[in-house]
Simulated scan of single mutants.
Amino acid sequence: MARLAGVERFRVPRQAIADVHEHLAAVGQSGYEGLGLWVGKATGETATVERALIPQQHLIRSASGVGVHMGGDELHRLNVWLFEHDLRILAQIHSHPTDAYHSQTDDENAVATAIGSLSLVVPDFARRPFDLSSTAVYRLNAAGSWLEVPPQNACRLIEIVD
């Protein structure tokens, strides 16, 4: 499989966006963050999302806030499934209660770990329809840091297709 670091365009079907956003909105109605994944393949400068996955997840609410966690068994199951289907995680998408930003917890507990992969943060528990311009987009660099992709660049990097 091609490396994600050289990808300049992520092609994402509207259905994959809708599948994740529906999950984020559903758990958000109960006051929780949610997590979804876009999986697919990379060829040259293009990564193509083939489908969305909603992994089993633990929704967390404590005095310090809300969060979402995917356990080790689920991570193992997911990795076996990806291997069997010759797919990889291209992006992780999760929601926040208010502003969209990548927190330190998000940095430290990422599921997408390949250099060049994306992490999207949807604001306001996904109460409104998906809008790339209000979604925070980050990309993992070679140093292991999540760098914010400016909104104008995010709209060029992520191509929404029917």
Score class of each variant (00 low, 15 high):
Val7Asn: 04
Met70Asn: 08
His94Leu: 04
Val161Asp: 02
Ser119Asp: 09
His58Ala: 09
Asn153Thr: 08
Glu84Cys: 06
Asp131Lys: 09
Pro97Gly: 04
Leu87Trp: 07
Gly67Cys: 06
Gly116Trp: 03
Leu35Tyr: 04
Ala47Gly: 05
Thr48Leu: 12
Ser103Arg: 05
Arg61Val: 11
Gln57Val: 12
His21Cys: 05
Glu45Arg: 14
Val111Leu: 15
Tyr138Pro: 11
Gln57Gly: 04
Leu118Cys: 01
Ala42Glu: 05
Arg139Asp: 11
Ala63Asp: 11
Gly40Thr: 02
His96Asp: 07
Asp86Ser: 15
Ile160Asp: 01
Gly31Arg: 06
Glu148Val: 08
Gly72Thr: 14
Tyr32Asp: 07
Asp73Ser: 11
Gly28Leu: 09
Ala100Gln: 10
Gly72Asp: 15
Glu33Trp: 10
Asn79Leu: 09
Ala112Leu: 09
Asp73Gly: 09
Val68Asp: 01
Gly144Ile: 04
Gly44Tyr: 03
Tyr32Ala: 07
Thr48Val: 15
Asp162Ala: 14
Ser117His: 08
Arg61Ala: 12
Asn109Phe: 06
Ile89His: 05
Val7His: 03
Glu8Val: 06
Thr43Glu: 14
Leu78Trp: 08
Val161Glu: 03
Arg128Gln: 15
Ala5Cys: 04
Ile158Gly: 00
Pro151Lys: 02
Leu147Glu: 14
Ala5Thr: 12
Thr43Trp: 07
Phe83Lys: 13
Asp124Tyr: 10
Gln29Thr: 04
Asn109Leu: 15
Ser133Pro: 01
Ala16Phe: 00
Ala154Gly: 00
Arg88Gln: 13
